[in-house]
Design a binder for these strands. Structure first.
Length: 337
DNA sequence: AGATAGTCCTGTGGGC
DNA sequence: TGCCCACAGGACTATC
């Protein structure tokens, strides 16, 4: 399930392999992947063909590639099962191949031909591609902290200069900043949560409040911060908000360093390799396992000997699974529901 | 404005 | 073996 770190892995891959290259042709294998593009598949092909891909950008789980000399961008959302692969023309067609962009030829330093197809693959079709006008970002917050270095040999238009107004596709203008953007600090997060009257996990998953957090990292961050998913956002303390944000940033940066989270072949980077962050999960999908923090406390005799270490449980919340340690993340009391 | 339900999808796996 | 159904979830819309 691609969340922010996985999308960032894809963004870096697209930057490395496709930025600066021209789109020679476009092939739509399944129009359902263009469902969100109101102008239709013919307009999609017409507007994209001949355009040059600029440096890919990302906010939360939304990825977009500005088109050089154009005021719009190719927007990509991976949804539940989307993949972007850069492959050679003769690679066999994937079962769930949806869109193929044929790119202009390019060569590496040794003169070997780079793969020339950018393929969008999506099994469940919750993701998709569209074209969207770029506008100045109302929630402009500067550069993405985790922004990768640019390869000048491949990219003709450089990254945005610090302090320049950031542009964002209209179709993604409604989402909030993500945890890796500099504007999101402990005080900002505290105030954002306090403004809402809802449960913490609901707030984390609300992309208009903070973007990029999905079910996996929400559970991991709540576990890291020792907070229950139903804790009321309007009663959060500064210390709790700071813990939760720290949990989010740490789990996302660790996942990014590991190349993303993958449970199966649904998520891979642009070269087809899976990340391995799933080995590092503490809560999500860990039902029945002893809580690692409780176990560590017990090992150092910090835990009351009469209490047994927590076992991760799965609960239904918001129509989806939530995993938590009942010992570390107790049900809220004192009217703080 | 917050919460909920419905929609879009397909592969998987449990139950019978 | 094979059929059916529940389940998985991100974003968006409609409705209360």
């Amino acid at each position: 399930m691609p969340e922010l770190p996985e999308v960032e892995v894809v963004r870096r891959g697209v930057q490395r392999w496709a930025a600066g290259r021209r789109i020679e042709s476009v092939q739509i294998h399944d129009v359902r992947s263009l469902r969100r593009f109101a102008e239709g598949p013919e307009a999609f092909i017409a507007q994209l063909t001949g355009q040059v891909l600029s440096v890919p950008q990302r906010r939360g789980k939304f990825l977009w590639i500005p088109l050089q000399s154009q005021s719009n961008a190719l927007m990509i959302h991976l949804g539940m099962s989307g993949q972007v692969l850069i492959e050679h023309d003769d690679a066999p067609e994937e079962k769930h191949l949806k869109v193929t962009l044929q790119l202009s030829e390019a060569h590496d330093d040794d003169g070997a031909a780079l793969p020339s197809q950018l393929r969008f693959i999506d099994q469940r079709i919750f993701g998709g591609m569209q074209l969207s006008e770029l506008r100045s970002d109302p929630g402009h917050s500067g550069l993405v902290r985790s922004g990768a270095s640019v390869s000048p040999d491949l990219v003709r238009s450089g990254p945005e200069l610090p302090g320049s107004a950031r542009l964002i596709p209209a179709a993604a203008a409604h989402i909030g900043p993500d945890p890796l953007e500099p504007v999101v600090d402990a005080e900002w997060f505290f105030r954002a949560l306090r403004r809402r009257r809802t449960g913490l996990k609901r707030a984390l998953l609300d992309q208009t409040l903070i973007s990029g957090v999905g079910n996996i990292y929400a559970d991991e961050a709540l576990w890291a911060a020792r907070l229950h998913y139903a804790r009321r956002s309007e009663t959060i303390t500064r210390a709790e908000a700071a813990r939760l944000l720290e949990g989010l940033v740490q789990v996302m940066e660790a996942a990014l360093a590991a190349g993303g989270t993958s449970f199966d072949a649904l998520y891979v980077n642009v070269n087809g390799a899976s990340g391995y962050f799933d080995r590092s999960l503490h809560a999500y999908d860990q039902a029945g396992r002893e809580c690692t923090r409780c176990a560590a406390k017990q090992a150092t005799d910090e835990l009351d000997a009469r209490r047994s270490p927590g076992v991760i449980v799965r609960e239904k919340f918001m129509g989806r699974s939530s995993y938590l340690c009942p010992v570390c993340q107790p049900t809220p009391r004192n009217g703080r529901w």
